[in-house]
Design a protein around this nucleic acid. Structure first.
Lengths: 256, 256
DNA sequence: TCTTGTGAACACGTTCACAGCT
DNA sequence: AGCTGTGAACGTGTTCACAAGA
């Protein structure tokens, strides 16, 4: 797909030119990891980091799965995509796992981030501590309001939106975060792309149109709320229906 | 799964007791809609709302699919889950579609929202305009800081976190939004659940443990960034690999 | 003729269950 | 004896391709 992806849908997937040989292990492996597994690996990584701090050195698939909210078979399969780093009969060495997941997720490099749109959300993002801590330094901030240019937010001076292309190229931004109003989002996106940014995290409630080689992920509050709304409604309908048929919500017969 | 879900992964899925008959059309239908389709329906709804404002009255699957960033077969299948409201040879009536999608997503009811954790993000959420506009009135705000209690944010006075249970029950909150630091999230979640909240949107970077009947969706910035990081890395590896084999990124032979 | 709606084929992701190691 | 790693079975979601209908 040449477009977005929200909670678990598809992602930009370039066809798939295989054509490598010998020491292609890591590359080949990375290519084969299912998208859904990548998202979970990030979760495992966080849980494992917590374990390290608690001094845990070894963990079984069952324990880690429980803490990550998945079943253990899935966890083991996910880990098998990145290699076999467990010990049968024992479990996984926590630090070893952490370092392998970090490697696969590309967290050994620094990925400079640019945030565009310094409103409520942009401020929150610029000040978000967990951002730089894990190798995602905020390298640039942009806004369309000339009064903001030069003003430092979270320690970084805001640049004008017209300078996106040059500043991003200069500072080697690899991830662009769009936190603008929806009307501005596509134009901002186009500028980011022409600055060479290939990964975009979009908070604006619009479907961005991008070239195939650009990866967009979206965080869409309205969509999330509406999905929850759907479940509230379904639940209510179910309850109503079940009672109509004389069966209570939990299977108890109310009117047999 | 009895846990979270982020960008496109699984969602709490209670087993599936079928057992209804006659006028069960809507209910039965709702139950059958794939989770992934629900997320897209919300996107179609937004696109269609824009169309209404532009005065568009009819739209083909091809056009709508383009605007929503999906392919037209998928769009038609998604719409078919909610019924057959198109006209062959012509397309869909925009207003008809809007009202059917709204009905299916449960947007005809009001869903009161409580936001817990009035920090940077909580402020942004409380002030977010698109929230109440579409049937999600913010009915309560909570924070642990006693200095904040009583202070109005976005027009609503903040209550203390200890009052979650009573206040949420009183105001019939159906969706809880957790915007606290990670350490506080599970405790807040437990209180929301005991107040009867069955749908939770979690911004805290932790895996919440909840009973099966509670639906949790999570928005996890760190995970999103790491997924993008993975793609940056994969891309770099690919490029390296391709060049090693004498093939450039776009298939051009550099060293045949 | 044009576009929808959908069965059938396919691809992807999950779960099961057990062989293989420690 | 215990836990990992994984082939095979299963289920869900996507895409194809065309019949049905305006």
């Amino acid at each position: 797909m040449a477009a977005q992806r929200g909670e678990g849908d598809g992602v930009v997937t370039r066809p798939g030119e295989t054509g490598t040989e010998a020491p292609a292990d890591v590359r080949e492996r990375a290519r084969a990891i299912p998208e859904a597994a990548v998202a979970r690996l990030a979760v495992y990584l966080r849980v494992l980091s917590g374990m390290v701090e608690q001094g845990v050195t070894t963990i079984s698939s069952e324990e880690l799965a429980g803490a990550a909210g998945v079943n253990s078979a899935k966890l083991r399969k996910d880990l098998s995509y990145i290699g076999s780093y467990g010990t049968r009969g024992v479990g996984y060495d926590v630090e070893v796992l952490v370092s392998h997941i970090e490697r696969i997720l590309g967290l050994t490099r620094k990925h400079s981030v640019a945030v565009v749109g310094i409103g409520n959300l942009g401020h929150a993002l610029a000040n978000y501590g967990g951002f730089p801590s894990r190798g995602f330094p905020v390298a640039a901030l942009f806004d369309i309001d000339p009064d903001l240019t030069g003003v430092p937010v979270g320690g970084i001076p805001v640049d004008h939106i017209d300078d996106i292309t040059t500043v991003c190229a200069e500072r080697e931004v690899s991830i662009g975060v769009i936190a603008t109003p929806p009307q501005a989002a596509q134009a901002v996106c186009d500028r980011l792309v022409s600055a060479g940014v290939q990964c975009i995290l979009n908070f604006a409630p619009v479907v961005l149109q991008v070239p195939d080689y650009v990866e967009v992920r979206k965080v869409d509050l309205a969509v999330e709320m509406q999905i929850l709304s759907f479940h509230v409604a379904r639940r209510a309908d179910e309850a109503a229906g079940d009672v109509v048929n004389g069966i209570g919500v939990d299977g108890v017969v109310i009117r047999p």
